[in-house]
Write a protein that binds this DNA or RNA. Structure first.
Lengths: 240, 240
DNA sequence: AAAATATGTTCCGTGACACGGAACAGCGAC
DNA sequence: GTCGCTGTTCCGTGTCACGGAACATATTTT
């Protein structure tokens, strides 16, 4: 029963749209009757909302999601540094953590002329296709790198790195420079520079700046990104 | 069964801490056995996480919470304006919507020297104790105002308005000026100025700047707050 | 040392209640 | 009109969630 309810709610990932009963039943693999009864319960409990004949995710999820401890705490101490970084660059700023072979974005701030990116708060992308991901990968121990390299490398654009050797050198470069770069590997026309954030000696997060390819000037962005990452690392250590 | 699971998850509101099994069972009113089995299932499904003997809210909730449509969309179009406002003031900026007689905060951005406030993203506060709440109250129709005035007014600090007459005049002032003020009514030492955000003719949200009482200069903040609110209202209308 | 009181965990018999097929009701299309 | 599609209700069957009791283990009390 919990499994079935979860199956229904999971239908809304990753796009969070609105679905009709029949579609929910089909996606979740449940009987229409069961889906009907379950959706009714979920609405009653606040997990879903219903408008007319379509269901959406409910406000309770938003409230609970904001409370998830690791995410909330990290976001809270990181925000001032992300603001600094945004103010220095006026470009889209990301904060992400690793989960398995993917990066989960904790925060994403941008101005009026935001670049088009597949990254969303709470969204997941492959480690190997993003600046944040590569920064995390480079400082999460060699075992993880080998694991990731052993599996086939996913790609989001024609520029995504699919050659293990190229990725290995990219990771090594990130390890020596403390900065990870990404060029149109997650979205066409967007480049990115990222830096890892440490809590002690392990990378717990990474932050990045994503810039339209036309005005991407790594030399100018690098100091700002590095400064923000170091400042946040420091703040995390003193928080512990 | 869904009810019981919800009861467990709801134990984490509003503080999102970490609980042991026995405490969860007590808070949710369930048998220890039932709580045990349910928590196991919830962990398996990602709703909760377990470290040693304590349970926390799980990453799935964060990911799903970020997808809740109304919240996500509003936040996304509002963010650039909130950034403008933050950059202009360098004070804590809020964005909130109304839910019943409370305000739910959608976004809250701040710098290094953040004021101490009970507001949290996803958190709820009484309409009558906050700038955002008063701005929403002033532009949500007279029926709501009467409803709120009819009930006893909650208070968060000794400065919170508990006199219906005082509140009524405050709301009327907000209606004519288009700005709502709050002085130490939500937290001691913090003042606040807020403006409603419209989508068409109804207020769908409100944004505010919270400032330590010492350096609160409404005359300087008012234009910035008003500008941001108007800009956002415009953006929402063109989005529709 | 032993007894007492916590904790989390397992077992199991009972009974409630979730399940899904079938049937119904309302709507729009062709 | 009929067909196909919604969402919804009904109900008999069988499952699986339930919670008391017993267990294992750690920490505190006597």
């Amino acid at each position: 029963m919990l499994d079935k309810a979860t199956a229904i709610v999971d239908c809304f990932r990753p796009d969070g749209g609105a679905f009709r009963l029949t579609e929910l039943a089909a996606r979740s693999g449940l009987t229409k009757t069961t889906a009907f009864r379950l959706c009714g319960d979920l609405v009653r409990l606040g997990w879903l909302e219903r408008q007319g004949d379509v269901y959406r995710l409910g406000g309770k999820l938003f409230e609970l999601g904001s409370l998830v401890p690791r995410r909330h705490d990290l976001r809270e101490t990181a925000l001032p540094f992300l603001q600094d970084l945004f103010e220095a660059t006026h470009e889209t700023v990301h904060l992400g953590v690793r989960e398995g072979h993917e990066v989960v974005y904790i925060e994403r701030i941008h101005g009026h002329d935001a670049v088009r990116l597949p990254s969303r708060i709470g969204g997941r992308l492959p480690l190997t296709c993003t600046g944040v991901g590569k920064a995390l990968l480079a400082f999460s121990g060699p075992e993880l790198t080998e694991e990731v390299l052993a599996a086939p490398l996913p790609s989001l654009t024609p520029h995504s790195i699919t050659d293990p050797d190229r990725l290995r050198t990219a990771v090594e470069q990130a390890q020596v420079s403390g900065l990870a770069y990404e060029e149109q590997e997650a979205a066409l026309g967007v480049s990115c520079i990222a830096a890892p954030v440490f809590d002690g000696s392990v990378a717990v997060a990474a932050l990045s700046v994503a810039v339209p390819r036309g005005r991407f000037q790594p030399a100018q962005l690098a100091p700002a990104v590095r400064t923000a990452a170091l400042g946040l690392s420091r703040a995390l250590r003193s928080r512990a």
